[in-house]
C-alpha cells in the first residue's frame, strides 16, 4: 500500500509545472524514504531529478519500493481539478499499480474529490550521477536567473557563463548584436533570499542552450534562491531547494570536439 498526503497541495502543482515541459512520461519511484523521479528530455540533452522526502508528507506510507509510470500531461489535467489550497493525497496499490488515486480535500474538509489516473509502463534509463566537487557554485535569487535567461534569449539561443571570484557573467552573441549581464556577490544578511554568493575553486567558462535554461526556470516558484554548479566540460547543475526536497536540472554543455 502506498499513500502520501501533502498538506500544501499547491506545491505538487508547482512541481508538475517545473517538469512537464521537459519530460512527457516519467516514473515516480516510491520507497519508504520518499518519492523520486529521474528523467531525460526527448533530445537527451537535459535531465531532471526530483526528490521528495517522506517526512514532508503527513502521513507517508510505502511498504515496498515500486514505480508509478505517469503521463505528465494527463496528470497535469487532473491536477488542474485541485484547488490551490487543497490537501492532496496520492494512493496506489503497490502490488498491482495500474492506476494512481488522487484525492483533493478543501481546507474545511467539506468538499472531497477523487480521481483515478491510469498508469503506464515506462522503460526509462537511469543515469548514475556521482557526487561532484564543482569548480564554481553560485547562489542567486531565482527570479534574477529567470530574468537573465529571458532577456538574453532576445539576443541568442546560447549563453556563455563565466564565473570568477568577483562575478558571474552571462554573455549572448547573436545576429542582431550582443548582450551580457554581470552579477557581483552581495551579502544581504537581513534579506538572505536576495543574496548572491560565489564559491570558487577555479574559474569556469561554459556555453549552454538558453532554451533549456529557460525551461529550468519553471522551477522559480519553488524557491527564492537557485544554485548553479559548474565544472569545466561537465553538465551544469541548476538546483531549486524546497522544505520537502529538491528539484535538480542537469544540462550538457556545448563543447568543442
Amino acid at each position: 500500500m502506498f499513500e502520501a498526503r501533502l498538506t500544501q497541495g499547491a506545491l505538487l502543482k508547482r512541481l508538475l509545472d517545473s517538469v512537464k515541459e521537459l519530460v512527457t512520461d516519467a516514473n515516480f519511484d516510491c520507497s519508504e524514504t520518499g518519492i523520486s523521479l529521474q528523467a531525460m528530455d526527448n533530445s537527451h540533452v537535459a535531465l531532471v531529478s526530483l526528490s521528495l522526502r517522506a517526512e514532508g508528507f503527513n502521513p507517508y506510507r510505502c511498504d515496498r519500493g515500486f514505480s508509478l509510470g505517469v503521463n505528465l500531461n494527463s496528470l497535469n489535467k487532473i491536477m488542474k481539478c485541485a484547488g490551490n489550497e487543497d490537501v492532496i493525497t496520492l494512493k496506489a496499490d503497490d502490488s498491482s499499480a495500474d492506476s494512481l488515486c488522487l484525492l483533493f480535500e478543501n481546507s474545511s474538509n467539506e468538499r472531497v474529490s477523487e480521481y483515478e489516473l491510469k498508469l503506464m509502463d515506462i522503460d526509462q534509463e537511469h543515469l548514475s550521477i556521482p557526487e561532484t566537487d564543482y569548480d564554481a557554485t553560485v547562489m542567486m535569487p531565482s527570479a534574477e536567473f529567470q530574468r537573465i535567461c529571458r532577456d538574453l534569449m532576445v539576443v541568442s539561443e546560447s549563453v556563455t557563463i563565466d564565473v570568477s571570484k568577483d562575478e558571474i557573467k552571462f554573455t549572448a552573441e547573436g545576429e542582431l548584436g550582443t548582450g551580457n549581464v554581470k552579477l557581483k556577490p552581495t551579502s544581504t544578511i537581513d534579506k538572505p533570499e536576495e543574496s548572491i554568493t560565489i564559491e570558487l575553486g577555479q574559474t569556469v567558462s561554459l556555453q549552454f542552450s538558453l532554451k533549456y535554461l529557460s525551461n529550468f526556470t519553471r522551477g522559480t516558484p519553488l524557491s527564492d534562491q537557485v544554485m548553479l554548479c559548474l565544472s569545466d566540460n561537465m553538465p551544469l547543475l541548476v538546483e531549486y531547494k524546497m522544505d520537502i526536497g529538491y528539484i535538480r536540472y542537469y544540462l550538457a554543455p556545448k563543447v568543442g570536439d
Binding site: 531525460m40 533530445s43 537527451h44 540533452v45 537535459a46 535531465l47 534509463e125 537511469h126 543515469l127 548514475s128 550521477i129 556521482p130 556555453q207 542552450s209 561537465m234 553538465p235 542537469y250 544540462l251 550538457a252 554543455p253 556545448k254 563543447v255 568543442g256 570536439d257
Partner: peptide
C-alpha cells in the same frame, strides 16, 4: 564551433 553534447556523454547508465 561548439557542439551540443548529450547528457549520457558525461554520466553512465545505472
Amino acid at each position: 564551433g561548439l557542439n551540443q553534447k548529450r547528457i549520457a556523454w558525461f554520466y553512465l547508465p545505472k
